[in-house]
């Protein structure tokens, strides 16, 4: 049998992208933020993506979800199907999920109404009120969120930690096959980090996969990724395991900068 890492459509893969390039309009010029990324996430695997500020990590995550502000070249695969031409809601319905670095407030829309609409969209059917209530209560308890948040307006006036908990609560409810977690650990105190990490671990199983974007080792100690990538100047410059995380903690990113430049030269040749 062929190596599933080479075939993006292989059923062992939950996500893959090939030669992914992401451009953003900058005045009357286009600027290339992501410069050719190949990545494959197999079922049951947790990947971490680390990189310095401004390297394009959040752009990569948003573009994979289909953010309309970017032009994207290359292939995006979700569970064996091309999704790069699909609108964001169709990617979501097929199982892609993005936990936002800065979850957006939607005043006037209650958390309950929003979650019910999202669940109906993901499952393709309306959820009976009673069953929905029960599911919601359990998820709120798991994420240690006060049930009164159910009737509050979505992310409106929430603290940073409350927003991140609600993101992972959505991950638990929507049961995505592939999750992009964009700096879900940023702005969390130790207790909240534990709750959020436990939620991520609870949502993870042998059938799904995730890509966790972060700056810090501490969430990785709690989530324990199988694969770690270093992302610099729009490219994956190194892939390894937790040992790579320790090396970055000790040495920073500079020692990888030369490799990044070398890869850039190679791609131009």
């Amino acid at each position: 049998m062929s190596d599933p890492l080479l075939n993006p459509a292989d059923p062992a893969n939950v996500f893959a992208c090939r030669n992914l390039r992401v451009f953003v309009q900058d005045g009357d010029q286009e600027k290339e933020i992501v410069r050719g990324v190949d990545l494959t996430v197999r079922r049951g695997r947790k990947h971490a993506l680390m990189g310095p500020n401004g390297s394009g990590k959040s752009t990569l995550a948003a573009a994979l979800m289909g953010h309309p502000g970017y032009r994207v070249e290359g292939e995006i695969w979700l569970e064996g199907e091309r999704v790069d031409q699909l609108e964001p809601h169709l990617r979501a319905r097929r199982g892609m999920f993005l936990s936002f670095q800065y979850p957006v407030a939607v005043p006037g829309v209650t958390v309950a109404n929003f979650l019910r609409a999202s669940l109906a969209a993901r499952r393709g059917t309306e959820i009976p009120v009673r069953a929905f209530r029960q599911e919601l209560n359990e998820a709120f308890a798991t994420m240690d969120i006060d049930p009164s948040f159910i009737t509050r307006y979505l992310n409106d006036g929430f603290s940073g930690g409350e927003k991140k908990r609600l993101e992972i609560l959505q991950m638990l409810l929507l049961k995505p096959s592939f999750s992009l977690l964009d700096e879900t650990d940023s702005g969390l105190d130790i207790d909240a980090l534990k709750v959020v990490s436990d939620g991520i671990n609870l949502a993870s199983n042998e059938q799904n996969g995730l890509l966790l974007v972060t700056h810090y080792q501490r969430i990785l100690n709690l989530v324990q990724p199988d694969v770690v990538h270093v992302f610099m100047s729009g490219r994956l410059v190194r892939t390894g395991g937790m040992e790579l995380v320790h090396a970055l903690e000790e040495r920073g990113y500079d020692w990888l900068a030369d490799e990044s430049a070398a890869i850039a030269e190679g791609s131009r040749a």
Partner: peptide
């Protein structure tokens, strides 16, 4: 985009934002 990333199509997302705008 936030609402679309949760599976709501553009129209549903817009409808929800407008309803929210009027709600209070």
């Amino acid at each position: 985009f936030y609402l679309e990333s949760r599976g709501l199509d553009r129209g549903e997302a817009l409808g929800l934002v407008v309803a929210g705008f009027l709600e209070n």
